[in-house]
């Protein structure tokens, strides 16, 4: 069973989410049609871990690209145009491109891992959240939390509260 509350105003939704957090209720999610920088601050979402993926991916991509060039040149030593076998200027260009390529791909992986997407299972959601309402959802609360959660949501000024059963 999940509980969802719909809000008209951003502040109300944020205060509801904060209240739920303060009450020690887990699995609270705050949904909004647009990114809310205020909410991110309020919920303590600082720098995202995605950046680590980008950095590590880019470094690995750069190293991988350069070593790919060097390895290729050494497997068959084929001089061309009097250039060095390990010629830095062209290899650095390839390194540049692979840095970006692997950086982008690992950022993508980082996005999926950090945002916990794709959603394989169903999660509480209301379509209004993608239009012009803010939705606070509590995913499968324990039986003694239900009342408390509903109280907090209603107290924050929700337009409506809905209980939906199961995980489907």
């Amino acid at each position: 069973m999940d509980i969802t509350g719909t809000f008209q105003y951003e502040e109300d939704a944020i205060s509801a989410a904060q209240g739920l957090h303060a009450a020690g209720i887990k699995n609270v999610s705050l949904m909004s049609p647009i990114p809310m920088h205020a909410a991110e601050k309020a919920l303590g979402l600082g720098k995202s871990n995605v950046r680590k993926f980008t950095l590590i991916g880019a470094i690995l991509g750069g190293l991988g690209g350069f070593s790919m060039c060097v390895a290729t040149a050494l497997v068959f030593i084929m001089p061309t145009g009097g250039r060095a076998i390990i010629a830095l200027p062209p290899y650095l260009l390839i390194t540049y491109e692979t840095t970006i390529l692997i950086g982008v791909l690992s950022t993508l992986v980082g996005f999926f891992l950090v945002a916990k997407l794709p959603a394989w299972k169903n999660r509480p959601y209301r379509v209004e959240a993608n239009v012009n309402r803010f939705v606070v959802a509590v995913e499968s609360p324990s039986s003694n939390e239900v009342k408390k959660a509903e109280q907090i949501i209603r107290g924050a000024g929700a337009l409506g509260i809905e209980q939906t059963g199961g995980t489907l």
Binding site: M78, P79, T80, G81, G82
Partner: peptide, 17 residues
């Protein structure tokens, strides 16, 4: 040519020295 411009151009090593 010892420093052939054409050799550097080939992406697949079809030409080399």
């Amino acid at each position: 040519c010892d420093e052939a411009p054409c050799e550097t151009a080939c992406p697949v090593f079809a030409t080399y020295h």
